[in-house]
Design a protein around this nucleic acid. Structure first.
Lengths: 340, 340
DNA sequence: AAGAATAATGCAATCGAATGCAGAATTTAC
DNA sequence: GTAAATTCTGCATTCGATTGCATTATTCTT
């Protein structure tokens, strides 16, 4: 190892300037003469110097780390979001540190502690239960917190989500236009705002069309319960011929149950709509009609909110809802006269 | 915000001891009397004190951050691995910082710089091109580096991968036992060791069974090219009736092409095997026969290697290969007399 | 060209903890 | 009970930067 630990002092010596000068060259907002800048840049390049972010953080009080809390990555939606978030934050000079949270209270507490230990500048919470504890701690510590894809009504917390209510409503309009005999709904985890909002929009939309749900079961956003929920709903003699499943992953499971277990065809016997538009939705094996979550936009907005909160120190509570389009595919083709 | 920035000094004052005493209580390996420990712990709890990891890093030279470099997260394999890696490292008191690398050389350079800026203690590189540059830099800086799911033969770099050669060979044995007329292979990105090893094993396995590949195209691990590769291979009049596709995601695409575009049945007209055993492989819509990557074991070994390198300072080059079983599902059922 | 205004620079303190050293307290040995 | 060995403890320094302040060098005015 030729060079171990090049510090600003080394660069200063070589460039024949003071250590502060070096610091100023690498600190934007600080001023230095062009001559100094050139000398320092040159010396730095020769030595392979780069400022130590940690040391910088210590004095500025900014770590340039954003903590991302996720409970699971096995819903495709999250990795996609993580990827975009990481890229977007990189542009701002921030980086993502990943914190996995299981469901236990104890765990979320520990996770928060860990994040604070690293002095994260902000926290993005995606799919996290027990969010009020989290929020309390963050408020106490003055750390900006954004809920991504979850909102917490009542308590006024900042969140960025899809416009789930509108999406649910659109799906209702779409399904109603097929004039099905019976309409089903398979719910996600009832503690999740995504679930609640999607259902509320769906029900209101149906009502507006003079329809209602004839059958409802709960899949809880996990495969096993969703299988059971689908079996329960579609084993009945007069089962629905149109169903909205609260998210895409559950929808895949439901399709599997319909086709493989119950030998029903989609969209022949049952038309089916999901929510999220995760990558497999476009795979021919599923070709799922669904409402798209505009992850890119959601991430953009999240970053915007965070950066604003970090730089101004103000953290006005906002609840952004990003509407996404209904993507019509094979699992529920467009009804006659449908105009997106 | 009731309490902002509680430092060891605050705790020291309240506990009536010196700052060093506080530090010693929170530094394992340091000694303090039980009495001091109790006083400090109590004061710390009352104030809600936790050591600042960044400040600690500055002086210890250990950030307790592991940099993870990934090019894309849209192959399910990576999020699953990330999740496990994050959990495993948490146990060791480390955390994962995510660095996205696009394919450009410039980019990987920048990514390395960024990681060094954060003083990461180690780097895990998953699915990264241009690895020799990366490796050089890390060696220079004395940072342990493990290639996850990629190896770089020739240059002796540490890696943890599946036993891709063995897996490919097993698939050959399995397919040969079906006595198909013609056998096809759809390759991944040819610069990737996973691709090369799987193919080498496959070809050797076929040879051992007195068979060979009659048709080979390249899908490059991406959807579009895989579609083209599948169309090219199966539009031919005498197309293969058994095919090994270099990874699961490509295999899904191939199945879609076979069924939806070419109206061929799987496993009726063509039997098909993938590699990875990502979650969708089990979905009934695909039910893919594949070789499992034992992500859990791979992550375990990776962490073991890293921790050893970090604590001892020694980084012996190792190339771990974790064998995984062939998982037989619908896309290629077990041939007569097959014994796993 | 001289004085005012502005920019650039170095000095030294600081961020929050860890740690070598020397002295104090405690334990152990006999 | 005293000396030796051991464990604790506080002081002061250090890690690698940033930044307020005072000073010096430039540039601008007229």
């Amino acid at each position: 190892m030729p060079n171990d630990k090049i510090t600003s002092l080394d660069v200063a010596k070589r460039a024949g300037v003071s250590q502060s000068a070096v610091s100023r060259v690498f600190t934007k907002g600080a001023s230095a003469s062009q001559k100094t800048i050139d000398k320092v840049r040159k010396a730095a390049k020769e030595l392979g110097y780069r400022p130590n972010v940690l040391a910088r953080s210590l004095i500025t009080g900014r770590s340039r780390i954003v903590g991302l809390v996720v409970a699971y990555l096995d819903n495709y939606f999250y990795p996609v979001a993580l990827q975009k978030l990481s890229n977007a934050l990189k542009e701002e000079g921030y980086h993502v540190m990943v914190f996995m949270a299981s469901d236990t209270t104890k765990d979320i507490e520990r996770v928060v502690d860990e994040m604070l230990d690293y002095q994260v500048d902000a926290i993005v919470a995606a799919s996290v239960p027990l969010s009020s504890d989290l929020a309390g701690r963050c408020r106490d510590e003055g750390i900006p917190l954004v809920f991504f894809n979850r909102s917490q009504d009542g308590e006024n917390l900042t969140s960025v989500t899809a416009d789930n209510y509108a999406g649910g409503k659109e799906i209702a309009r779409f399904l109603a236009a097929h004039h099905p005999e019976r309409i089903g709904y398979i719910a996600g985890f009832e503690g999740a705002s995504t679930q609640r909002d999607r259902e509320a929009g769906f029900l209101d939309g149906l009502k507006a069309a003079g329809r209602e749900v004839s059958s409802r079961t709960v899949g809880n956003f996990n495969t096993e319960e969703t299988r059971a929920a689908a079996l329960a709903m579609f084993s009945a003699p007069r089962h629905p011929d149109a169903v909205f499943v609260a998210n895409d992953h559950m929808a895949f499971t439901v399709m599997d149950v319909l086709r493989s277990d119950l030998h029903l065809t989609v969209p022949g016997d049952v038309i089916l709509v999901g929510y999220d538009d995760v990558p497999p939705a476009v795979w021919a094996g599923y070709s799922l009609t669904t409402v798209r979550q505009r992850t890119g936009r959601m991430v953009e907005e999240t970053v915007k909110v965070l950066m604003n909160a970090i730089t101004t120190g103000e953290a006005p509570v906002v609840n952004l809802k990003i509407a996404g389009p209904l993507i019509v595919r094979g699992s529920a083709p467009a009804p006659k006269g449908w105009t997106g």
